[in-house]
């Protein structure tokens, strides 16, 4: 437990001290918000149509800026072979995975919160009353994305072409949770009636659980060699 806290602390401290990393990721997310506005805002869609489009656009921003953060989170471990420290000191790889997962998740969660707020303000979307639900759905999808992303960033970090390889491996496998999150967010935004036993919610929860457990179980095979 103490090594878990220590490793978490180290990762978070890195994110805070190396200000460029966090700051540039947030800036990149803003840039994506701007670019997404070219796609549809000029046409002047109605509030309803905006609600239809917004979840997909939001997830596009989460995915692209998230994958940069994930890739960064592991490449600094490999650059100076820092990863050998925790592995050789006998830290359980699953503890190592959990600490990486938690610190990555905290970072992505703050990114998602920021993007939701920024997007809502810039596009005038009426989040009033549903913001908590939207954030929860985004975080559930984000959890699955981060679990797989932590595993795949460990794989990609030591390979040539890691920058293209990470999204290539990560995005297709993130489709089930992301699709679930997008469809549920749309239902929330349109204030349609929905149940927590809906197909999309089961898909979101199921793929979230499976990808987290699998990534956690298989992580040892990736870092131990």
């Amino acid at each position: 437990m103490s090594s878990f806290l220590l490793l978490c602390q180290k990762d978070l401290r890195y994110l805070i001290r190396a200000r460029g990393v966090a700051l540039s990721t947030f800036g990149f997310a803003l840039l994506l918000t701007l670019v997404s506005s070219f796609a549809f805002r000029q046409v002047g869609y109605s509030q309803q149509e905006m609600a239809e489009i917004t979840p997909g656009i939001l997830w596009l921003i989460f995915l692209f800026s998230g994958v940069i953060a994930l890739g960064n989170g592991f490449s600094y471990e490999v650059e100076n072979s820092a990863i050998r420290g925790p592995i050789f000191s006998g830290t359980d790889p699953s503890v190592f995975f959990l600490s990486k997962f938690v610190s990555n998740f905290l970072f992505l969660a703050s990114l998602q919160l920021f993007v939701l707020l920024a997007h809502g303000v810039l596009f005038g979307i009426e989040y009033f009353g549903v913001f908590g639900e939207l954030l929860l759905l985004a975080l559930l999808g984000g959890m699955s994305f981060v679990a797989l992303g932590t595993l795949f960033s460990a794989i990609a970090a030591s390979l040539p072409g890691k920058d293209i390889l990470l999204p290539l491996m990560l995005f297709p496998l993130s489709i089930p949770p992301v699709a679930g999150s997008v469809f549920l967010m749309r239902q929330v935004l349109l204030e349609q009636s929905y149940q927590w036993t809906d197909f999309w919610f089961l898909l979101l929860l199921g793929s979230c659980a499976i990808s987290t457990v699998l990534s956690w179980a298989l992580f040892a095979y990736v870092v131990r060699e």
């Binding site: 795949f152 794989i155 390979l159 496998l173 699998l214």
Partner: peptide, 11 residues
């Protein structure tokens, strides 16, 4: 081979 096996299982 390890990497491929891990991705193979998850896929």
């Amino acid at each position: 081979k390890n990497y491929a096996a891990v991705l193979g299982i998850i896929s």
